[in-house]
Each structure stands twice: as C-alpha cells, then as structure tokens.
Design a protein around this nucleic acid. Structure first.
Lengths: 125, 125
DNA sequence: GCACATAGTATCAATAAGGATACCACGTGA
DNA sequence: TCACGTGGTATCCTTATTGATACTATGTGC
C-alpha cells in the first residue's frame, strides 16, 4: 500500500478489512478498478473518457498508486505520440469479488441516497 | 450518504461501486462495521476498547454518519450514567458480504504490504 | 471526598487528499 | 503552419478529514 491512512497494522480482526479498504478508498480508485475489470485493458485517454470528472493530475496519481500497490499493470509502448495501457494484475483481479459486491449493494440500495427520492432533489439539475 | 465525496451520482457503471465505497470509506468506518458484525450489539465504550486508536470525537462522528446513512442503529437507554448501544441495521447487514470479501482479500494478501516480508521492501527505505 | 466510567460536546490544529491551472515534445491531419 | 491528441509533470491552492485537548453531569466504588 502506498501509504496506509494510519500506517500501522495491528492485525486485529478489523485490520484486514480496513487495510483493504484503504487500497481502494482513493476517491477514484474504485471506479478505475471497476472500469479495468469491466472493459479490460484501457489506455490513459480511454480511462479519462470513462471518468471525465477526474483531473489529469489526479488520474495519474491514483494510477501510480494502484500500480505501486501491485493492483494495476502499466505497459508503456515506446512510440510517439505515447501509448500506455493499464490493466488489472492478478492481485488486482482478486479484488473483483469486492467490486462486484460493492456494485451489487449499491445497485440495490443507492436509491435510498442522493437520488431523487427526496423531492428537493427532484427539482435540482 | 452523509456527504458523497464528489456529490453527484451519474449512474455510470462505476457509480454504484464508488458510492458504496464512500459509505464505508471513513477512516474507521469499516472497522466499526466489522466489529458490529463480528460481535453484534456493542456499547460506545466497548467499541472504543476494540478500536483504541480512534479519538472519542472521531468515534462519535463516524458513528453518527453511519447512523445517518442508515447503516447503524443507535439505542439510548434513559439512565445515568448513560448507556448507548450500537448495532447494524438491516441495511448495514447488507454490507456484510462486502466486509467478508474485504477481510478475505486482506487476509490472503496483506503480507505483501506494510510488513517487511517483501525483499524489495527490505532494500528500500 | 475522590477517582473512575459513561458517552459524549466544543474548539482549534494538523494532516491528507484532491483540484485548478499551466506547461511539455512530438506526430498527425487539415 | 496550426490545432489537436497523447500521457503526462509542476506548482500552488482548496477542501475535507481526522486528531488533540479540555470539558461535562451523574452514579458507583473505595
């Protein structure tokens, strides 16, 4: 892990849970991992098209951290203009059950949050 | 959700994943949820004993957010000294497969991180 | 009478994370 | 020749999150 939020593993029962969450808890990391899972190998520009709201700087940062944690593979083609491909590593593919569970729960329950179940939300953009 | 990290649900495929992560992504939230799952109903002081490094203020904050998100139930007994019990709601219990998957992955892979088991780590700072 | 436990609240500070903006070298297409 | 795309880097700023510390009212036990 690039840097655990609180850098200590006391190996209490919650430890594994919390450490794993910290790997995927970066603001955009779970979405990046999701897209690499759903669409396979993607280039930087393809990721940016799929996740338009993240800045270039942040996308680069989070991809680098995911790479450093061994979850994502970065392949650079020696050409100009540059071509870089990102894909899940075997370790990263191990996170797929988690991503699927997260999506399953979210799909089933997200309408309880922020979605226009609230009339106030219905009037917003 | 008390406040989504980036407050928009565009309902792209990653949306459900990322929104769910943001519910459990508070620094101590996943550990709190884990202990409420593992040990059932717990009092505030019991949680603090299980998670000694969190400050009282932060524990209160995160529990309040989990309650506001409907994941945790807070029961106050009208007595002195005060007695408050926290437990997972039905919605919160729906997160258990996620917590189990997180723990499973962490147990299988955490030795790659933060612990000096990696030779690469041994040579680095 | 005092220390302790309970479950907090209040306030300010510190740290971390992410955003905004400008810039880069080169090939390609118009 | 210029605009654009590629995949970034650099720097500073803003925001969010968490931590540190002090304090609270009451009952209980010593």
């Amino acid at each position: 892990m690039t840097k655990a939020k609180h850098s200590r593993f006391d190996c209490s029962p919650g430890c594994a849970v919390e450490a794993t969450v910290s790997l995927i808890g970066g603001k955009w990391k779970s979405i990046i991992l999701w897209h690499l899972h759903a669409d396979g190998t993607l280039r930087f520009s393809e990721l940016r098209r799929r996740i338009p709201n993240v800045t270039q700087r942040t996308m680069t940062n989070q991809l680098r951290e995911l790479e450093q944690d061994g979850l994502v593979h970065r392949k650079v083609y020696p050409q100009v203009p540059p071509k870089v491909e990102y894909s899940l590593t075997e370790l990263g593919r191990g996170l797929v059950p988690i991503l699927e569970a997260l999506k399953h729960w979210g799909d089933a329950n997200l309408d309880r949050f922020g979605k226009p179940s609230s009339t106030a939300d219905q009037t917003t953009e």
